[in-house]
Amino acid sequence: MSPLLEVRSVTRRFGGLVAVDSVAFDVAEKEILSVIGPNGAGKSTLFKLIASFLKTSSGEVIFKGEKISDRSPHEVARRGVVRTFQETTIFRGMTVRDNVIVAHHLRSKASLAGYFFASGDARADEAAFARSADEICDFIGLGEIKDEMASNLPQGHLRALGIAIGLATDPAVLLLDEPFAGMNHDETMRTVELVRGVRDERGVTVLLVEHDMPAVMSISDRIVVLNFGQKIAEGTPAEIRADDKVIEAYLGAEDESIGL
């Protein structure tokens, strides 16, 4: 089976710094693949390159056989590759439900003029988006608080809302940057289950960047390890755990904090 997403020796320089250095790997459909590595290794930059929020210095990203790198982000999102943010990025001045409703944009059938004049398509869209948003809120566990202002949510719920926003776009590939950051153990476990559900029940391919090693080891089908912008290892969690280069890259950091 040909891969869903191919990262082909992608490089990104910031001035003299090579943040991502000829990184290449493939992602299969319905896979959960994690990208790990020390701080500053280039993980977030890599995600921005895949979702085309940054232009590559060289190399390309291929999705379903088509080059998606160096396009505008909304065009890449339209093709099904959607990124959520490392920072808890949501629409703060909207309710939880409105956050999810507006994120259905890619499923719009009506034009802007259609929405203004409440055309048949527009009314159908609005009803469908509202229904789907309720369903997603329930699925993510935000059903109870969907009328809350997003700015009032605690950290854990913000991450969940971020994932809900991602899901509303009906993505083929969802890029999650540190979805468990700032969560306690229980919240992390709950979100791990959620991410599994996103893949198992909705058939979404998931790429994630994460620091929480136990979570990464339990959730990932495969792991890519970056260090100083370069890929130093790739494999199943078991292979990564036994990889000398990975252990070396993490030397200096405390073992238990990495959980290797």
Binding site: F53, S72, H74, A77, V82, R83, T89, R92, T169
Partner: peptide, 13 residues
């Protein structure tokens, strides 16, 4: 108004 970057990531032109 609230977040242009997020808006474009959900596919808004």
């Amino acid at each position: 108004q609230q977040n242009e970057e997020l808006a474009s990531s959900i596919g808004v032109n």
